[in-house]
Design a protein around this nucleic acid. Structure first.
Lengths: 125, 125
DNA sequence: TATAGCCGGTCACAAATTTATACCAGCCTT
DNA sequence: AAGGCTGGTATAAATTTGTGACCGGCTATA
C-alpha cells in the first residue's frame, strides 16, 4: 500500500486502526453505559470471545482509553472503566452508534434493492 | 462466539461492521471534502490498494451511501459521490475524524508510557 | 469426596480478512 | 515500440480474528 497523498488521511487511518474497530467501539459504549464492568460481564454482554476481549482491552488500556484495576480478592476481580480520554471518545462514538441505529433500515433497504438489481442483471446476461 | 446479552450491541455491531471499517470512513471523509472523486484519485489520495478500494466502494454503493457514475469516454471515467444517506453519515464521521486528529498525540503519549512501563517490568522480572 | 463451575486469562491452531503483486484491454504520449 | 493512464480482476502471501482447550485457585452441589 502506497503512502497517502493526503497526510491527514494517514493520521486518521492510524488512529482509527487503533480504536476504530468494532469491538473497541462496543467496549467503549458498554463502559460508557455501565461505568465499571468486569471481564466476564463484558464478555457476556457483548458476545465476544475471551481472546478478542482480552486483546481489545489490553489495546484500549495501552492507548489510554480504559483503566484496568485488579482486585486480589477471592475470587479475583478485574474491573475496567473509561479514563478521561476514553470519556472524550464517548461523544463521537455515541453519534456513530445513534446514526447506526437510526439508518440501519435505510441501509437494509438499499442493500435489498442493490441485490435485486444485480440479480435481474444476471438473468438478463 | 456467543450471542450478546445486549441486543442493541448486536445491531450496532451489525451496522458498524458494514460501514464502520476505516477505509469506508476515509472514503466518506474524502468524498465529503471533495464532492466527487474518480477511482484513481481516491486511490492516490488515501494510499489504499486497488483491491480494497474496489471492494470498499462496491460495499458503500450497495449500502446506499455512495453513487457510482460510469462515463464511457476515452479514457473512461468512473465518478464516485455521496448519496443523501451518505451525506447524513458525514456528521458522525466528521466527529470521529476530528476526535482522531485531536487526540492522536494523547494516544501516542499513553502508548509510549505503557510500553515504557512494560519494558521496566520486564527488566525487573 | 468427587464433580462441576466461575474467575480472568493464555496457548495453539484454523478460518477469515487484508495486502501485495501481477495482469487485462484500450488508448495516448514519447 | 515502450511505457503510462484508465478502472478494475485474479492469485497468493501476510496479517487479523475466531475456536476450543487448558491453567490455578477457590466454592457450591450432590
Amino acid at each position: 500500500m502506497a503512502e497517502p497523498q493526503c497526510p491527514e488521511c494517514g493520521r486518521i487511518n492510524e488512529v482509527l486502526s487503533r480504536v476504530g474497530d468494532r469491538w473497541s467501539v462496543l467496549v467503549v459504549i458498554s463502559l460508557a453505559q455501565y461505568g465499571v464492568l468486569r471481564f466476564n460481564a463484558l464478555k457476556r454482554h457483548l458476545g465476544i470471545s475471551q481472546r478478542m476481549l482480552s486483546l481489545t482491552l489490553r489495546e484500549l488500556e495501552r492507548d489510554g482509553l480504559v483503566s484496568r484495576t485488579y482486585h486480589p480478592t477471592i475470587p479475583p476481580k478485574v474491573e475496567y472503566a473509561l479514563t478521561p480520554l476514553g470519556e472524550s471518545f464517548r461523544e463521537p462514538v455515541k453519534a456513530l452508534g445513534l446514526w447506526a441505529l437510526e439508518h440501519l433500515p435505510a441501509i437494509d433497504a438499499a442493500r435489498a434493492e442493490y441485490d435485486a438489481a444485480a440479480e435481474a442483471e444476471k438473468k438478463t446476461a
